[in-house]
Amino acid sequence: MNPFAMLIAFTTILIKEVTRFTRIWQQTLVPPAISTLLYFVIFGSLIGDRIGQMDGFDYMDFLVPGLILMSVINASYQNVVSSFFGAKWGKSIEELLVSPTPNLIILLAYISGGVTRGILVGLIVTGISLIFTDLNVFSVWVLGSVVILTAVLFSLGGFVNAIFAKTFDDVAIVPTFVLLPLTYLGGVFYSIHLLSDFWQNISKANPILYMVNTFRYGFLGISDVSIGFSYLMICGFIAVFFVISLYLLSHSRGLRA
């Protein structure tokens, strides 16, 4: 396949992905908006006023970056896992596998679909947050890079999950039992300085903590962890998941006998 043909294949898959999640916007774009709105109302306005300040900022200002990134993580992961597993389950993934489209293009296009939905949901949640607080941006470059890298990483995570999944239950297990606890314990709602040294060290084993803190740094200019190390870790995870995904696309028994 020549580069132009690859570009056509890439855009075809990406357009298909975007068409899919915008067609079912009631399931893909509205729920994160509603749940985040509730988080802002309950944790930000009602409880947040009683909490006071967190790391020198109003609790609402502290909360906003974490909630935005949490939405991005969930949206990018859910997009790829549900779309790719759905195609696998309905066998329509064979349309792609029998074609000359290289595995690299298939993977990049699915990731791009996940990133697109993640960023769109992130923008929606950011818009809702403006109802409750004024957002100050400390570094637009950090914000942009972290949100994209995080969306890429969790799109890859969704991709691996989709390849291994055999039933729709398998698709729900990781978000419920892995993603949700890691996100809630990843510093979205609190600073890890509130924890004892022991639990701080345990928390530092949670990769989502680094993403949330780096994203928060982009807004507030504060972080519980080293920004440089965060980037290194996110990129490291992306590299590992990327290689795994490419290998599985070629060799997984879930796709090819």
Binding site: M1, N2, F4, A5, M6, I8, A9, T11, T12, I13, K16, A87, G90, K91, S92, E94, E95, L96, V98, S99, P100, T101
Partner: peptide
Amino acid sequence: VVPQEFNFNIFETPLQIIRNQAGYYGID
């Protein structure tokens, strides 16, 4: 290849299915 079992997305239209397939082969 025309497989034995139906393997297209049942939520898509024939137009979408055929055009997408062309795209996977790099056809403008």
